[in-house]
Design a binder for these strands. Sequence first.
DNA 1: GTTTCTTTTGCAAATTTATACATTTTATTT
DNA 2: AAATAAAATGTATAAATTTGCAAAAGAAAC
Lengths: 178, 178
Amino acid sequence: MYKFAKETYKYAFNFGWEIMKQRYERLMEIRRLIGQSQISSQDELMRLLEKQGFELTQATLSRDLKYLKVAKMPDDRTGYVYVLPGKEQESRRADLATTADYGFVSIDFAQGLGIVKTLPGHAGSLAYTIDQLNAYEVAGTVAGDDTILIIPRDGVTRHDLVSLLQLKVPGLIFQPVH
Amino acid sequence: MYKFAKETYKYAFNFGWEIMKQRYERLMEIRRLIGQSQISSQDELMRLLEKQGFELTQATLSRDLKYLKVAKMPDDRTGYVYVLPGKEQESRRADLATTADYGFVSIDFAQGLGIVKTLPGHAGSLAYTIDQLNAYEVAGTVAGDDTILIIPRDGVTRHDLVSLLQLKVPGLIFQPVH
DNA sequence: GTTTCTTTTGCAAATTTATACATTTTATTT
DNA sequence: AAATAAAATGTATAAATTTGCAAAAGAAAC
């Protein structure tokens, strides 16, 4: 939804001399389409624009996207998606946990249990985060000061567990300091 | 700066069975490089990694970047830059004004002056924002309720003015409602 | 209206990025 | 340790994106 209804924003770009009206309408439409749907290539976007009655080549689209500062980012669903400036964050918030500093140090396995090492004092909060995932794979956790014991359910492999954590706790493995 | 010094994070990925140590070190280095410098192509990144002693092909890099969810976004300086997830925002904060809702409607020119129309009551705040730019091009502004008069300095063209505003007030032209 | 200057766009080529497939490497199981 | 399974990587190629250049379209100046 844009602030100006079509009728209105049509004139929002009247620079006094009928500049680039068509181009700006196209740019608006591009923003709308990208904000609304998961677009993963310029050709795909081009086809959508053509349906709307715009005529253009992919080369122009490349320039438009550059002008609009639209980024192309990897996406689990579609492979890659175009995202509007400022919207990148939102699209990453699907996961429960945020990219906070968990104090994670390492994970190891023994006796069918996962042993997570953390910085001193960080075990509790990371264990809590893991509990909050409510994941089937995790039967329960026990936290000390700098160590967490993860008890996997029967049949859950260490690999399943690592996958789960990597998927649901982004930033756990690669955690830069702010 | 990473939380774990090299010596430490070397072992942060000991999953109990010597998994992918080399790969993870490379991934860490990629994150470091991308966070630190303005990298605009995979080949460029590859060369940097080779200097660090890593051996790999561009294909692997493409996969690594996908895994790390590194986005490629347009950048005024370098054309395009790779950005870490969560860091996109920061790289856009160089400009004074933020992507707020300015109530901007249109801009026109007459008598050598710029006439900006805004939504009712928005003239004052947008004029203030423009004043805060402290731009040479603008000798001064006068704001009513929904209209701003911009007085350009001698020799400043309407084009200069539009360029200035587009450059310094991102989102002025394309402003989606939140 | 005509001329001049600027911007936009398409075309084609260059560059950059992604991926299918085969191979190697690494982990898991027996 | 051997066999099996899974993951990572290179090679070659396909796909996608960017860009130089020339033409067209649009504004500005005259």
